[in-house]
Amino acid sequence: MKKLEKKVAIVTGSSRGIGKEIAMKLAQEGAKVVVNYRSSSEKAEEVVNQIMQQGGEATAIQADVSQVDQSKHLVEKAVEKYGQLDILVSNAGIEYFGKLEEITFQDFERVFRVNVAGQLFVVQAAARYLLSGGRIVMTSSVSAQISVFYHTLYGASKAAVSAMVRNLAPELGERGITINAIAPGGTATDMAQENAKYYTHPMLQNAAPEALLKSKTSLQRLAQPEEIAAAITFLVSEDASYITGSTLAVDGGRL
């Protein structure tokens, strides 16, 4: 029997990148998966079709999780479709780099609305339907624990996620629900390609950014999205039934 047989999972921001691989992996383990997207309907449907071609079950639901009412809509539509909810993987998020003097209140509001409020309120919406044995995984980052030039807003938003997980654990634990966070390191996605140069010291930005990123991990390479997905699949399975309130670093041994 597959690890997630008869389970229903929502994965936010799952039309591409790490989110796509999470949705694919959960489906491979038997879960019925809700592929959430904000604007990329064609890509979301591609993910759904790939899951179904592999014998899984999935549906795409549009929702911008930075909007509280849309998070509620996402969860309600998922329960309406499948009759239950067992797993939430809060993956949607945005990057941001900016010098201190350049940061505006609008930047702060945009980053924290998606990375913090967006995650908190989709968890709130999902928790209304989760029963004992329910699983929640939020998305933090190694950036919450390391220093990176001009990454203050993003790092702070991801540190907030780890704090939320720690503090929600006893509250949800009373109901038999676990909540954890994943903290990926550098991962080979299109987002990483766009932002890799910013993760290097300004004096070294003429060097190959991907090579510099690789040099900062014990395994000397970037993660593949499916490796992050495998760690999340563990956290939402029965194998992780006694793990809650934790942030799991999947960073290749960050140096």
Rank of each mutant, 00 (worst) to 15 (best):
E42G: 01
V89A: 03
S241H: 10
N206V: 13
E42R: 03
H73A: 11
N180Y: 05
L212Y: 11
A9H: 08
A31T: 02
G118N: 01
V123T: 11
Y96L: 09
F105K: 00
D190G: 02
A31V: 03
R135L: 00
E95C: 12
K7R: 14
L235C: 04
G186D: 12
A58T: 15
L172F: 13
S162T: 12
H73Q: 15
L204G: 08
A223M: 13
L204T: 11
E57R: 13
Q50E: 15
T187K: 14
K77P: 05
D64C: 06
L255S: 14
R38S: 04
N167Y: 14
L213N: 07
S246Y: 12
H201C: 00
L204H: 13
S132C: 04
A240V: 03
Y199G: 09
A44E: 03
A169C: 08
A63S: 13
A192P: 00
I87P: 01
S90G: 07
P202A: 02
L26H: 04
R175W: 11
I10G: 03
A60H: 11
F234C: 13
T12E: 09
F112N: 03
A156C: 06
R128I: 06
L213Y: 10
Q124F: 01
Q119G: 12
Q84G: 00
V250P: 03
A240E: 09
A92Y: 03
V47D: 07
E101T: 09
K197L: 12
V114Q: 04
Y242N: 07
E101W: 09
E101A: 08
E194D: 14
K43G: 08
G253E: 13
K3S: 15
I182M: 07
R38G: 06
E21G: 02
E109Y: 03
L248V: 14
S39L: 01
G56A: 13
N167R: 10
G83K: 02
A31C: 03
T200N: 14
Q28N: 06
A63C: 06
M203V: 14
A117N: 06
A181S: 15
A44Q: 08
S157V: 07
N195Q: 11
G118M: 04
M24K: 04
A160Q: 07
G134F: 05
R175P: 12
K32R: 08
G252R: 12
A58F: 15
I232Q: 05
A126V: 05
V35I: 05
L26G: 09
A240N: 10
R110Q: 08
V123C: 09
R254G: 05
A126Q: 06
E42S: 07
A183L: 11
T178L: 13
F112S: 03
A60D: 07
I10Y: 12
D190R: 12
V123W: 00
L131F: 00
V48Y: 05
R110G: 01
V75T: 10
G186C: 08
G19Y: 05
Q124R: 07
R128Q: 12
R128E: 13
Y82I: 01
M138G: 07
V111G: 01
R38F: 04
T244M: 14
V161W: 00
T244G: 04
A230T: 11
P209N: 10
D86S: 00
I232N: 06
K6E: 15
S90H: 01
N167L: 10
R221I: 08
K25W: 06
V11S: 06
K7W: 11
I87S: 00
N49Y: 09
E227A: 05
G93I: 03
A207W: 02
A27G: 08
A192V: 11
K32M: 03
V35C: 04
R135K: 09
S40Y: 02
